[in-house]
Amino acid sequence: MELQELINSLSLEVKTPELDLHREVTGGYASDLLSDVIGNAHKGNIWVTLQVHLNIVAVASLKELAGIILVNSRNPDADTLKKANAEKIPVLTSTLPTFELVGKLYALGLRCR
């Protein structure tokens, strides 16, 4: 599934409009612990989290994730967005809490494993 399709289906707000959103999403990963994501997320996963600080971009870049969705209407720091643009990691936001957003991603067919 393409990232752009997820954005349309779930009314996600795109915080990095300069980036190409036509990229393949291989599955989903939900976690607020950076070490957990480093250890267990897979390339091309869309990452659902409520962490907003700078390090999330570095983690997503390291693991070659398809993008980051911030839940509960969390707003990324300015530094985070700057780095996201530089590292080409799309950052999106949702008004939903993790449980509901993941539930909808799952219903669209995404899995962790």
């Binding site: 939900a30 509960n72 209407s73 939903l96 509901e100 991603l105 962790c112």
Partner: peptide
Amino acid sequence: LPMFDACGRLFEKGLRSQSASISRAPIV
């Protein structure tokens, strides 16, 4: 199960976050 799939399965079976408190969260 990983967190993602655990959430997905329970959501599929009809459970939800009440989350009324989230929309009026004082984040802004």
